[in-house]
Design a binder for these strands. Structure first.
Length: 548
RNA sequence: GCGCCUGUAGCUCAGUUGGAUAGAGCAUCUGCCUUCUAAGCAGAGGGUCACAGGUCCGAAUCCUGUCAGGCGUACCA
């Protein structure tokens, strides 16, 4: 890679000319915004000025004089402005990297940066008490995209969904369904306090009645409740799995809280904490000394009722993950849980794990906007726009792209009207259109009976061609950067830029012409662009249509 | 009150570890389809980067304060 090469050369030159030792991290190479400033630029002379007590431009000059760059790789080196050193790459280098791109095909953009390190990503983990709504979509898509990105840069990624299938909420679900059943049967019923009031449970109960009503009606009350609970929990979970699968969000493991409790992991984890002196009893409850690890206060792990808290289960689950050999645990959470981060890191530290190996991706809230006004949604109140409904209206591609376009830290207003329009206003079409257009060109060439031969890429000399090649070659850096920063939104940004560069090329130059050699070269360029669009979209889980 | 996130064009948002003249889409206006997809291209207008200080050769980016919005501050999930 060109960046690596330049970094090495600058380090050597600085050593030789100025007798300073630099490492690769300190050589900041960036792509200048303006083409006139070359392909790569470094401000190293500016940052060394203070330390060396010399003028930045003089330092730059000394470095440049000592550089021994291969002219077939770097065409021009110059000092500009206050002391930037600008590099212009030789076109031959671009062509050889383009060949590499064409050879790598689907794996272009992948690398082995992660060295097969085991990383666990936990996301969604919504209680199985109702359908997924629009607010859950963000976590689902961002978690999925982060997993895809990490996988592509060489990590061994394990995706998990933690199922809260034990405890209060499931009880409430069961009682809510039972109430609906009794309602249908004309039996006296009382809706549980804080139960789930949504329409979806009426429908669920009605279907349950039609399928197994006779059997259920005959059960004694206790058994009826436990049956209703079991059936509704399993049913809700099954629906969650289907919804996510339809949106191409998949998991390697569905991790059950019931299983965790049953294995005794929670009491073992708490025992461990107790042994180390981090637990104490107060008011009939057990507390973890979170305040010793920077949290605001100590946190309850066992309530005075004897039940464990979510936090207790989270600790046990965390230990379970470490026990399976994961070096890094990524939690994709809604920002409303950010207050839980210090206690989790504290528990990790208390149990002898590096708190920095726990990583929390906190996503700000999603607001649903319809007709310019915010729509409140909540499972318990029952007003829901489900992910399923949205998918039926706008399709998975639009949804995924929409949710992945924005940084996680900023609040996201999901404009229902705009999403429903399904119009060309949506940027996902802009990117997909570029891909479809390329496929169409390649088809056109095939229909004209043009046989593909090995091309001479050096025929690609036009400004728009060079710009396109450079933009394509940036892709691996974008992927790696997005993966390491856990910022999937960088991909849509890049792909939109790339689409613009491609469309400009397309309008300026014909691919299939009478010039056989040039046609071959441009078809190769199109192939390269198609590869990058396809790879980029696939990392987002968005389809790359061949026709639109 | 305290903690976390956010504030960039009329609207929705990008802006890499501080870099050279702050970008895109939508909206508005002007051109471009007998030639590989016009879901496209070319161009124009539009900015006190919330505000005030500070650090730095250099700040939308880092620090402090102020203002505004969101979230959190449970033996809830």
């Amino acid at each position: 890679m060109s960046k690596q090469y330049l970094q090495d050369q600058i380090i050597q030159a600085a050593q030789k000319a100025l007798d300073v030792k630099l490492n690769a991290q300190s050589i900041i190479l960036e792509r200048p915004k303006q083409a006139a400033h070359g392909d790569w630029a470094t401000s190293i002379a500016l940052s060394l000025a203070k330390e060396l007590k010399a003028k930045p431009r003089d330092i730059a000059q000394k470095i440049v004089d000592s550089l021994d760059l291969d002219p077939s790789l770097v065409a021009k080196t110059e000092i500009a402005g206050p002391g930037f050193i600008n590099f212009k790459l030789a076109s031959g280098w671009l062509y050889s990297e383009l060949v590499t791109l064409l050879d790598k095909k689907n794996s272009f953009g992948c690398c082995d940066h992660g060295k097969r390190e085991k990383v666990q990503v936990e996301f969604v983990s919504v209680n199985p008490t109702g359908p997924l709504h629009v607010g859950h979509g963000r976590g689902a898509f961002v978690g999925d995209a982060i997993a895809r990105l990490l996988q592509s840069v060489g990590y061994q990624v394990h995706r998990e969904y933690y199922i809260n299938d034990a405890g209060n909420q499931i009880d409430k679900l069961g009682r809510s369904v039972l109430a609906r059943l009794n309602q249908i049967w004309g039996r006296p019923f009382e809706f549980p306090e804080g139960g789930y009031q949504g329409e979806y449970l009426k429908d669920f109960a009605a279907q349950l009645d039609s399928e197994q009503g006779a059997r259920l009606k005959a059960l004694p009350p206790d058994q009826l409740l436990s049956e209703a609970t079991r059936i509704s929990r399993d049913g809700m979970l099954e629906n969650l799995k289907l919804s996510l699968k339809d949106l191409k969000v998949e998991f390697d493991e569905w991790f059950s809280e019931v299983g965790l409790v049953g294995s005794g992991a929670i009491s073992r984890s708490l025992g461990e904490l107790k042994k180390k002196g981090y637990l104490y009893d107060q008011d009939g409850a057990q507390f973890f000394k979170a305040s010793e690890f920077g949290d605001e206060k100590d946190r309850v792990v066992i309530k005075s009722t004897g039940e464990h808290t979510y936090f207790a289960a989270d600790i046990a689950y965390m230990l379970n993950k470490f026990g399976r050999g994961f070096k890094r645990l990524i939690y994709v959470w809604g920002a409303d849980h950010h207050g839980d981060v210090p206690r989790m890191k504290g528990a990790a530290k208390a149990l002898g794990h590096d708190p920095d190996s726990l990583e929390f991706i906190l996503m700000q809230m999603v607001r649903l906007i319809e007709e310019g006004r915010e729509v409140k949604f909540s499972k318990r109140s029952g007003v829901i726009v489900t992910l399923d409904e949205l998918r039926d209206e706008v399709g998975p591609d639009v949804m995924r792209y929409f949710f992945l376009m924005r940084r996680s830290e900023s609040q996201f207003d999901f404009d229902l009207d705009l999403a429903r329009k399904h119009s060309d206003e949506n940027p996902v079409f802009y990117v997909q259109y570029a891909h479809a257009r390329i496929c169409s060109i390649i088809d056109h060439a095939r229909e004209k009976g043009i046989a593909r031969t090995k091309s001479d890429l050096s025929l690609l000399k036009e400004k728009e061609e060079i710009n396109l090649i450079k933009a394509l070659l940036e892709f691996p850096e974008v992927v790696l950067g997005a993966a390491l920063a856990r910022e999937p939104h960088r991909l849509p940004t890049y792909l939109q830029d790339l689409a613009g560069v491609f469309h400009t090329f397309y309008h300026q130059h014909r691919v299939v012409t009478d010039d056989a050699g040039l046609t071959q070269a441009r078809l190769d360029l199109c192939d390269a662009a198609r590869i990058v669009f396809a790879n980029g979209l696939s990392l987002l889980g968005v389809s790359a249509p061949e026709k639109m």
